[in-house]
């Protein structure tokens, strides 16, 4: 089956201290359009491509670490099916840490 997906351009932003784990606070991404991009797939992609070190400070199992909030276009990901959410072009995904100890 040939891929019917185009490359996916989205914005990923880290805030509330989550940015300390990454090079840049705001990232314009162009994800390869080989298959569908769910939020879960994006999490792993971020771990493998953007995270400087210490993946345990960002992920726990196949979801974000407790204390990190995820918003897609300013909407709570709990309203969008969390990891199952299918990313759309020009989506903005925010990861905001609520952890004081970092």
């Amino acid at each position: 089956m040939t891929s019917g997906y185009k490359d996916l351009s989205i914005t990923v932003e880290f805030r509330g201290g989550a940015e300390l784990l990454f090079e840049k606070k705001k990232n314009e991404l162009n994800l390869p359009g080989d298959e569908e991009w769910t939020l879960r797939r994006l999490l792993f992609w971020i771990r493998d491509n953007l995270l400087k070190d210490r993946p345990e400070l960002f992920l726990l199992g196949d979801t974000v670490r407790p204390g990190i909030l995820v918003l897609v276009n300013d909407e709570d990901w709990e309203l969008l099916g969390q990891g199952e959410y299918k990313l759309k072009p020009r989506d903005t995904v925010l990861f905001i840490s609520t952890l004081h100890g970092g």
């Binding site: 784990l21 909030l69 609520t98 100890g101």
Partner: peptide, 21 residues
């Protein structure tokens, strides 16, 4: 966090005593 986000307010983040430890 949602209050801040709905009002588009920015915070100033600096690492604390035990950040990343």
């Amino acid at each position: 966090i949602y209050y801040l986000n709905f009002h588009k307010l920015e915070t100033i983040q600096t690492p604390g005593l035990t950040t990343k430890k």
